[in-house]
Amino acid sequence: MPKILIADDSETITTLLTTALESNGYEVSVASDGHQAYQLGIDSEHDLAILDQLMPGLLGIEVIEKWREEGIETPVIILTGVDDERTAVESLDRGAVDYVRKPFRLPELLARIRQRI
């Protein structure tokens, strides 16, 4: 069963994603801030991580950077705000494999996840 890490400080998003992903046959672990996400990524191996950009502690992009320094190459999809062009581009530059804008469409997100796993 592929393992996915979800990190977002909004409980709505994590609940929604957890429910959707679990029912699509993924194993999910959840973090609610940047440091927690970083730690979870270090502690166990994930097939994919979905990181919110705007989290307390570390930004999504910063989590990627710190993982890469530790040699963790988990592919990452970044969740960005509606009009945040800057983050979207920057996240790709800094090693994210993809980004998804909030509010998102579940089928689209699921398709992007399938593509990466």
Binding site: T12, I13, F104, R105, L106
Partner: peptide, 11 residues
Amino acid sequence: IDVRNALAGSD
């Protein structure tokens, strides 16, 4: 409403 705000499109 919370769920609604997180979603778009066909969802």
